[in-house]
């Protein structure tokens, strides 16, 4: 018998299963919301998984260098969707004027990874939902759906736990926390097709203005727009179907050194 479910239905169901699985094991969880299209899609799926009542906080790691549009979007939908929003910053580093000019690796590590570490320590989260996808970067392709991090936040990528038949490593020791990746199997175009189907609001930076749009968004200082006339979701989907440029080509942290992403991730970067 041919199933009536589409590829997007299959992805949606799988993600909801993973989201519920993590919450059933850990009640002390939070979701990381970068306000980009992926984590906003994840947020949408989390709302579905819990019938609109998200039973845990949604956390934004704020480097203070984000686009204004990102902050506006965050505040609007946090209110509209009734989110328990935590805004986490590394105040020490921000006080010391940390910025990309002091080195991109140091800046990402201090303002994102260290900020996250501090927030986890403060709130005692045992697991975190993240909207990363395998097709974003070769290092992310190696991730597990449930991925443990030790007390130093390190990712032991040489010895990852087995995952089979939707059975995951859902137990963590005192020192560990788990990263949970419900969107791991989605591709960029799947996300956009789902955004379109579900009418999920996204930051308008993704749509072309004056021949330029952002394909991936983060800090204003380290993101470059691409040449594009795609000013609607339909055009973005069409563009991605023919584009051969990789998604994160505008993101500085992927570029500087071949293994920068691996080094950042092994230290606990998202």
């Amino acid at each position: 018998m041919k199933s009536g479910l589409s590829q997007l239905d299959r992805l949606e169901n799988q993600s909801i299963f993973i989201i519920r699985e993590a919450y059933s094991e850990f009640r002390d969880v939070a979701m990381l919301w970068s306000i980009g299209k992926d984590s906003t899609t994840l947020l949408w799926l989390v709302r579905k998984a819990f019938f609109g009542r998200i039973p845990f906080p949604v956390m934004h790691i704020d480097t203070t260098y984000k686009f204004k549009e990102i902050y506006d979007f965050r505040d609007k939908y946090a209110k509209e969707w009734g989110l328990n929003l935590i805004i986490a910053k590394n105040e020490d580093a921000i006080g010391k004027k940390m910025g990309p000019k002091k080195g991109k690796f140091q800046c990402c590590n201090e303002l994102k990874t260290v900020a996250l570490k501090k927030a986890i320590a403060k709130h005692g989260f045992k697991a975190l939902y993240l909207g990363i996808r395998r097709d974003e970067h070769g290092i992310r392709a190696k991730e597990r759906v449930f991925s443990p991090r030790d007390e130093d936040f390190e990712w032991d990528y040489k010895n990852q736990p087995p995952e089979l038949w939707d059975q995951y490593k859902t137990k963590a020791t005192e020192e560990e926390h788990l990263r949970v990746h419900p969107l791991l199997g989605w591709r960029e175009v799947d996300v956009w097709e789902y955004v379109k189907r579900e009418k999920i609001p996204v930051v308008k930076l993704y749509f072309a203005e004056g021949g330029k749009r952002y394909r991936s968004i983060g800090c204003e200082t380290c993101c470059n727009p691409i040449d594009s006339d795609a000013d609607t979701i339909e055009k973005v989907v069409e563009e991605l179907k023919v584009s051969k440029i990789s998604e994160r080509s505008g993101r500085a942290q992927d570029k500087e050194d071949d293994y920068m992403m691996q080094k950042l991730r092994s230290l606990g970067y998202m």
């Binding site: 395998r134 097709d135 970067h137 070769g138 290092i139 392709a141 190696k142 990528y157 040489k158 990852q160 199997g185 591709r187 071949d258 293994y259 691996q262």
Partner: peptide
Amino acid sequence: LLDHLEEERKQGITIDTTQVF
């Protein structure tokens, strides 16, 4: 294309499973 971990490239082996499209 698949062996992205530094150790994988230096040793010329695949350590972990990965997915491409």
